[in-house]
Amino acid sequence: MQDSLHLTRPDSVFCASDHMASRHLRGLAKAGVQVPNTISVVGFDMTLSRNTFRHS
């Protein structure tokens, strides 16, 4: 994921699972990308509560 951040950023990322979405959120936060101001991240399987995530 680090390499892809140097390319043109998409408006959103759609992940097949909430676990994948949480990993993307952590990576984006580590890179200093503000979610949802700069990019949106969507998880699909509803396994994690939305209260689990920390918003920018």
Rank of each mutant, 00 (worst) to 15 (best):
D3E: 15
V33D: 06
D45N: 15
D45Q: 09
I39K: 01
H55M: 15
T52M: 01
F14C: 04
D11V: 02
T8S: 10
G27M: 12
M1N: 05
T52C: 01
T8L: 13
K30E: 15
G43Q: 02
F14D: 05
D3Q: 15
I39A: 02
V13E: 03
N37M: 07
L48R: 04
A21L: 06
R50D: 09
L25I: 12
L48E: 03
G32N: 08
S22G: 03
M20A: 14
S4E: 11
H24L: 13
L25N: 03
P36E: 00
H19G: 03
N51R: 05
V33L: 03
H6P: 04
S22W: 06
M46T: 05
L7E: 12
K30C: 07
S4W: 12
P10W: 02
Q34S: 07
P36T: 00
G27E: 11
G27C: 11
A16Q: 10
L48V: 01
A16F: 06
F53V: 06
A31F: 11
R50I: 07
S22D: 09
D11E: 03
T52Y: 04
L25V: 14
Q34H: 06
S17F: 00
Q2I: 06
P10G: 09
D45A: 10
T38D: 15
L28R: 03
C15W: 00
G32V: 04
N51T: 05
D3C: 13
S40R: 14
K30F: 11
S49A: 08
P36G: 06
H19F: 12
H6T: 09
R54I: 13
M46I: 03
G32R: 05
N51F: 05
R50F: 09
S56R: 11
M46F: 13
T8V: 13
L48T: 04
R54C: 08
L5P: 02
V35D: 09
A29R: 14
M1S: 10
V35C: 14
C15A: 11
M46V: 08
R23G: 06
S56Y: 14
D11K: 05
A29I: 02
T8K: 15
H24M: 13
S17V: 01
R26A: 14
D45W: 12
D11C: 02
A31L: 10
S22E: 08
M1Q: 02
M20N: 07
F53P: 03
F53S: 09
V13K: 07
K30D: 12
L48Q: 01
R54K: 15
S49P: 07
R54P: 09
H24I: 14
V33G: 00
L25S: 05
S49Q: 02
T47S: 15
G27L: 12
D11Y: 03
T52H: 01
R23P: 02
V13R: 03
S49K: 02
F14N: 03
M20W: 07
Q2W: 05
L28H: 01
S49T: 06
Q34F: 00
